[in-house]
Simulated scan of single mutants.
Amino acid sequence: MPPIKIGIVGLGKIARDQHLPALAANPDFDLVAVASRNASQEGVASFATLEEMLEAMPELDAVSLCTPPTVRYGQARQALRAGKHVMLEKPPGATLSEVEDLAQLAESSPGSLFATWHSRYAPAVEPARQWLASRRIRKVHIEWKEDVRVWHPGQRWIWEPGGMGVFDPAINALSIVTAILPRRFFLHEGTLQFPENCQAPIAANLYFSDSQDTPITADLDFLQTGPQTWDIHIETDEGNLALRKGGSQMFVDDQLEHEAPEQEYPGLYARFAELVARRESDVDVAPLRHVADAFLLGRRETVAAFHDEG
């Protein structure tokens, strides 16, 4: 097959840090355009909007949407109706209903739809899933703490409705545990801390369990300074497993068992190329459903106002 002609929509930090390098290293893709209100990319056609890009470049095969989730539904629908393959940054949409509608549209469209969860492609995630498959899980604890000022400097959209606040990074943890645990699990209660000047939480504590009453807890924080914490601890009947550094390292009983260079976004684009070739879609909303449940069941606490400058 000739390279897939792809355009990026939303040329922000995540697109520049992850998408552009991954595309440059993948011969299955040819980046031919970007659409962004405030940025352009040297060497490719640049447009202010997706609509302009689609109108000017009918030869485009696919688009990768790196815009905030609150605007992604309309863009994805427009691209699918134009017959393009569509890749969605995480989270795939602002609501479950939006994503389900897009999945239905993709079924009758010539294009594929890929709702991505980049943390599932961290190098130790699949080894962890395989290790857990033959063991009885007794307890799970998620510790996901990072500094919003480092990862989302000045981005006010993340504190608005649909921006998700601390769940923007924490959904990465939920994407991992929904991939590696052998049974579905369900939220029972939680506490969400909302800054008095924000519409999204800055921290949360969640309590889940599965059909066998396995306790699964999550401690989430968007104000951690210094070293960042992206860890998942799992106690089993045959030892304890820990995924550290966002799934890049796997420890069993404190012994390093698996580690490899980070290849999350290259893995996403390799998977997208497969879906395009097969004209298939891959849309899993399980991580987003857990976030929606947290907003539905979580007790709301108001905390001090958040300011970007600290």
Rank of each mutant, 00 (worst) to 15 (best):
A122Y: 02
R129K: 12
D101M: 13
E160Y: 08
A124E: 09
D101W: 13
A106Y: 08
P110A: 06
A128D: 06
R136Y: 01
E89F: 14
W117Y: 11
T95K: 13
L105Y: 06
A124D: 04
E143H: 09
F114A: 05
Q155N: 12
V150N: 13
Y121I: 00
W144F: 07
D147W: 10
H152Q: 15
K139M: 10
S109I: 00
R138S: 05
K145E: 13
G111W: 02
I158Q: 14
H118M: 12
Q104K: 12
Y121Q: 11
Q104F: 10
P123V: 04
I137S: 12
E98M: 09
E89C: 14
G154H: 11
L102C: 11
E107A: 15
S112P: 08
P91C: 02
Q130W: 10
A115Q: 02
L105A: 07
V140A: 04
R129E: 07
V140T: 14
P92I: 02
I142V: 13
A103T: 04
L102F: 06
E126N: 05
Q130M: 14
H118R: 13
P127F: 04
S134F: 08
L88D: 02
V125Y: 00
E143G: 02
Y121H: 14
A133H: 12
S109Y: 00
W151T: 07
A124C: 07
E107F: 01
V140E: 07
Q155S: 10
W117V: 00
P92N: 01
L132T: 06
W131G: 06
R156D: 13
Q130S: 14
L102M: 10
Q155M: 14
W131K: 10
W159H: 15
A133M: 03
E89W: 11
P123L: 06
